[in-house]
Amino acid sequence: MDYDFLGWIVVGLIAGALAKWIMPGKDPGGIIVTILIGIAGGLIGGYIGSMLGFGGSNSNIINVLIATAGAILLLWIYRMIKARQA
Rank of each mutant, 00 (worst) to 15 (best):
L43R: 05
G49A: 12
G41I: 01
W21N: 07
T68I: 06
I62P: 01
L13K: 01
L75K: 06
W8A: 06
F54Q: 00
P28E: 11
I35M: 07
S50I: 02
W76E: 06
W76H: 14
N63E: 05
G7W: 10
T68P: 01
T68D: 03
L74P: 03
S50V: 02
I35K: 01
I62V: 15
I48G: 13
F54N: 01
L65Q: 03
P24I: 04
G46N: 14
G46W: 06
I35P: 04
N58D: 03
A17D: 12
I66W: 00
W21Y: 14
G29S: 10
I72S: 00
D2S: 09
G41Y: 05
I37S: 02
I9L: 01
A15R: 00
P28S: 12
G56R: 11
I72H: 03
G38E: 07
I22K: 00
M80H: 14
V33C: 01
I9W: 04
I35Y: 04
G56F: 14
V11C: 10
G30A: 10
G55H: 08
P28A: 12
T34F: 04
G12Q: 02
I48E: 15
G30I: 08
G49P: 11
V33H: 06
T68C: 05
G38A: 08
V11F: 13
P24D: 01
I66Y: 04
L43F: 05
G12E: 07
A71V: 05
G7H: 12
I72A: 02
I61V: 08
I37W: 01
D4S: 15
I62R: 11
G29A: 10
I14R: 08
S57H: 07
A86T: 12
V10K: 12
M1L: 01
L65E: 03
A40N: 08
I31W: 14
I39D: 02
A71S: 15
P28Q: 11
S59V: 02
L13R: 05
I22R: 04
L36M: 14
G55L: 11
A67Y: 02
A19L: 13
G30M: 09
Y47S: 09
P24T: 04
A15N: 03
M23W: 10
W76R: 07
I32V: 13
I14E: 06
G41N: 07
D4Q: 14
A19M: 11
P28K: 08
M23I: 14
G46A: 11
G49S: 10
G12A: 10
L18V: 13
N58V: 05
A40M: 10
G7F: 12
I39F: 06
G41D: 00
M80F: 13
K20Y: 00
T34W: 05
I77G: 13
G45T: 03
S59W: 03
R84F: 09
